[in-house]
Amino acid sequence: MTTYLEAPEAFAPSAGRVAVVTGGSRGIGRAVCLKLARDGLAVVVNYVGDTAAAEETVKTITAASGRAISVRADVADEHAVAALFDRAEDEFGGVDIVVNAAGRLALSPIADLDLAVLDAMHRTNIRGTFVVAQQAARRLRAGGSFVGFSTSVVGTQLPAYGAYAASKGAVEAITLILARELRGRDITVNTVAPGPTGTDLFLEGKTPEQIDALAKAPALERLGTPEDIAEVVAFLTGPEGHWVNGQILRANGGLV
């Protein structure tokens, strides 16, 4: 598969813009980091547990003459997230883009779900989004963007996804509200809702038959890739997408 960072010349000249990407060490978050770095942004790669993966993402960017650092922070911890933004400002001078790709997934029928699992997932997906959005609202510079993450399952409403879809429905609910609260500051707020995407988080625990069925569900008859979603994020956070505001973008290949 072609990656974003095959050669140093892939980087655009830096315009001095800075992105904070939560969950940036793996999957969609990593693809977003690589794409934004290729577009010339300095990138703060946030992670919570996998230090090696975060450092590998940073190494991939810096080896191609990009600028990146990794910063550990639990997105649901307001003090850690404030420190994450402090580090971004200290290292690169400010923050222009915030992409909250950190998330947690647990599948279970509603009747059987362990409530401790529910609480942990909602802590990351709801509280974490809110905490990161708070800091973004306070710190983003004019012309900036916040991108949250939902899921197309909010619309498809598949069995076993009840708790996960509920947590992502909360993300969708605050999107236009935050966009309106930031009126007058030239900051956009949008949420991307991927369909089935070939990440480790998505593939874990599924049989080949289940994966094949999910791949055939979209009209384009394939799984999305992290790079597909990164391109959508780059559009929303770039000048070409700045008129899009307060929207939920279902990037799912035609899934119904």
Results as ranks from 00 to 15, higher is better:
93 G>P: 07
94 G>T: 06
95 V>W: 04
97 I>M: 00
100 N>G: 11
102 A>E: 04
103 G>T: 06
104 R>E: 13
108 S>K: 10
109 P>I: 04
109 P>H: 14
110 I>Y: 11
110 I>N: 10
111 A>E: 14
112 D>P: 01
113 L>E: 14
114 D>G: 11
115 L>G: 07
116 A>E: 13
118 L>C: 10
119 D>P: 04
121 M>C: 10
122 H>Q: 15
122 H>D: 12
122 H>A: 11
124 T>G: 12
124 T>A: 14
128 G>Q: 11
129 T>V: 10
132 V>R: 12
132 V>K: 13
134 Q>N: 14
135 Q>M: 13
137 A>H: 08
142 A>Q: 14
144 G>V: 10
147 V>R: 07
147 V>H: 08
148 G>N: 06
150 S>Q: 08
158 L>H: 07
158 L>R: 12
159 P>Q: 10
159 P>I: 09
160 A>C: 02
161 Y>Q: 07
163 A>T: 02
166 A>K: 03
166 A>W: 01
167 S>W: 02
169 G>Y: 05
170 A>Q: 06
170 A>R: 05
171 V>T: 08
172 E>V: 14
173 A>N: 11
174 I>S: 05
175 T>C: 06
177 I>Q: 15
177 I>E: 14
178 L>A: 12
178 L>V: 15
181 E>W: 06
185 R>P: 09
188 T>W: 03
189 V>A: 09
191 T>V: 15
192 V>G: 08
192 V>R: 06
194 P>W: 09
196 P>H: 07
198 G>E: 14
199 T>E: 08
202 F>E: 02
203 L>Q: 01
203 L>N: 01
204 E>V: 02
204 E>M: 05
206 K>A: 06
207 T>R: 03
207 T>V: 02
211 I>P: 05
212 D>N: 08
213 A>F: 00
214 L>I: 01
214 L>F: 10
216 K>L: 13
218 P>E: 04
218 P>F: 05
220 L>F: 10
221 E>Y: 04
221 E>S: 12
222 R>I: 07
224 G>Q: 00
224 G>M: 04
226 P>F: 00
227 E>S: 07
227 E>R: 11
232 V>T: 11
234 A>Q: 02
234 A>K: 00
234 A>F: 00
238 G>P: 04
238 G>R: 00
